[in-house]
Measured scan of single mutants.
Amino acid sequence: MDSLVVLVLCLSCLLLLSLWRQSSGRGKLPPGPTPLPVIGNILQIGIKDISKSLTNLSKVYGPVFTLYFGLKPIVVLHGYEAVKEALIDLGEEFSGRGIFPLAERANRGFGIVFSNGKKWKEIRRFSLMTLRNFGMGKRSIEDRVQEEARCLVEELRKTKASPCDPTFILGCAPCNVICSIIFHKRFDYKDQQFLNLMEKLNENIKILSSPWIQICNNFSPIIDYFPGTHNKLLKNVAFMKSYILEKVKEHQESMDMNNPQDFIDCFLMKMEKEKHNQPSEFTIESLENTAVDLFGAGTETTSTTLRYALLLLLKHPEVTAKVQEEIERVIGRNRSPCMQDRSHMPYTDAVVHEVQRYIDLLPTSLPHAVTCDIKFRNYLIPKGTTILISLTSVLHDNKEFPNPEMFDPHHFLDEGGNFKKSKYFMPFSAGKRICVGEALAGMELFLFLTSILQNFNLKSLVDPKNLDTTPVVNGFASVPPFYQLCFIPV
């Protein structure tokens, strides 16, 4: 009986604490739906499609509103004006990374994606500088992407125009580009180590996009005490870190300090320079996690976009025909596509942009946080508050993009057929937390897609009208449904 009384008292205290925290903070924060004790607004949000729920709530509470995930307040920004004001106009104040408990377990605050403060700034600055020195957006990395595009075309030829699921092959190409940047090595598509790495990356994007992960991140005790797919994700990350550590040891034994070959060499050189400046942010643990982040951000996002792009091109054969006509006119058949071609191919450029806009790969991006107490639109948001960005509300804005739910390359073309930029184009987020590999991803999408369409016609196994382009999961990332196609050599 005594234990029951204690339990009831504990629960009562928890409920009172929950109510007090919510009521004391709500006077400062933007308005929002009334949260339930302990669980907050979790029942009012469709976990399978958070973005749709945010759109519905914005119609009631406006472009800036507050939700509670458990006891934790989260300020939501919906629509271009609110997102721009926060991420661009007040970029420094909104540059923090929001709480992501599962990532905390995986990387302990290291790396480039989930770190904060001085650690994040130094690692991000170093990573950007190193990638630029190796030619991100310049010639040397373009050579690597072109080489991988040629290998991709050869792998597709091996399908002999038979029906195939493109998931694996389209994942190999961007993964190999990242391998060449980090390890100075590309792998054969049949290499077992490479296959294991690909498998872990593919599993992780599916797990991260599941409703279960949303629950884990908002009720963090689940991570330590409950079984579930989150444990598989943590094991996959541990596998990748151990693999990278092996490569780091190989580099330490063979590195030429006067001739760095890749990202690992550059990081080890930085560690050597910083060894007298303790404590340094440049450690082996930081290198492991930064490399894992580059793999995660640079492989599955690009391969998922490529997979979605081919599905949309199957669905819209008239678009595919126009792209192939432009390829034939500008590039021809006797040389590989290059980035200089893009400025002469406005329709193809528009298609690449429209694919990214339409699929809305990361509907709410990753959570941000404010780095200080900030007054925002007459609300006071306390330091450390998590900020949720609705990228969907920007990419699918119906004023900027008429009929935003329709796939239409003319969203990025003017009346004369010239490519038209849009400030609403934010597939990689915006501001200080914009994806480090934005330029690389854009290069890969253009070169891989043009190389495929230069060499193959795409054949659907069903009537294009019957192809479903609805994402199968739409949590962290929008993942396309399973499909097969035939690559018919031109």
Rank of each mutant, 00 (worst) to 15 (best):
210 S>E: 06
32 G>R: 01
224 D>G: 07
68 Y>A: 02
437 G>F: 14
399 K>A: 15
423 K>V: 12
433 R>H: 06
443 M>L: 06
371 T>L: 09
117 G>V: 05
334 N>M: 13
344 H>W: 08
489 P>F: 01
365 S>N: 09
116 N>H: 13
162 S>W: 06
289 N>M: 12
226 F>P: 02
440 L>G: 00
289 N>Y: 08
244 I>E: 01
326 E>C: 00
385 T>S: 06
39 I>E: 02
82 A>R: 02
243 Y>A: 07
70 G>V: 02
395 L>E: 12
353 H>C: 11
188 D>T: 13
91 G>P: 08
119 K>Q: 09
84 K>Q: 07
72 K>H: 15
449 L>W: 00
269 M>S: 15
397 D>L: 02
267 F>P: 02
127 S>V: 14
356 Q>L: 13
484 Q>M: 05
187 F>M: 07
136 M>C: 14
259 N>L: 08
108 R>L: 10
297 A>G: 07
478 S>N: 12
277 N>H: 15
297 A>Q: 15
83 V>Q: 03
9 L>S: 06
73 P>A: 03
238 A>R: 09
184 H>W: 05
230 H>E: 04
2 D>Y: 08
23 S>V: 08
359 I>L: 08
363 P>M: 04
111 G>M: 05
392 T>C: 08
351 V>Q: 00
202 N>D: 14
458 L>I: 07
420 K>L: 09
122 E>M: 09
232 K>P: 03
6 V>D: 02
487 F>C: 02
451 S>N: 15
116 N>R: 07
213 I>V: 14
85 E>D: 12
357 R>E: 00
171 G>C: 12
390 S>R: 11
295 F>H: 00
83 V>D: 01
79 G>P: 01
467 L>K: 02
342 R>F: 04
390 S>T: 02
470 T>Q: 14
385 T>V: 04
197 L>T: 03
355 V>A: 07
177 V>Q: 01
163 P>Q: 05
97 R>K: 11
273 K>T: 14
383 K>R: 06
175 C>D: 00
296 G>H: 15
156 L>Y: 01
139 R>S: 12
35 P>I: 01
111 G>C: 04
111 G>D: 06
415 E>T: 15
292 V>F: 12
163 P>E: 06
258 N>E: 11
111 G>A: 04
325 E>R: 15
92 E>P: 07
454 Q>W: 06
192 Q>M: 07
119 K>I: 07
296 G>L: 14
108 R>P: 11
368 H>W: 06
350 A>N: 00
297 A>L: 10
220 S>E: 13
343 S>R: 10
399 K>L: 15
308 Y>R: 00
50 I>G: 05
400 E>G: 07
172 C>A: 14
306 L>V: 04
248 V>K: 03
469 T>G: 05
450 T>W: 00
244 I>T: 04
454 Q>H: 04
119 K>R: 10
285 E>V: 06
328 E>M: 15
222 I>P: 06
166 P>F: 01
243 Y>K: 08
54 L>Y: 03
107 N>Y: 13
158 K>S: 12
439 A>D: 15
130 T>H: 13
151 C>I: 07
474 N>G: 14
41 N>Y: 01
420 K>F: 05
379 Y>E: 01
61 Y>W: 08
388 L>W: 15
467 L>V: 10
396 H>C: 06
362 L>R: 09
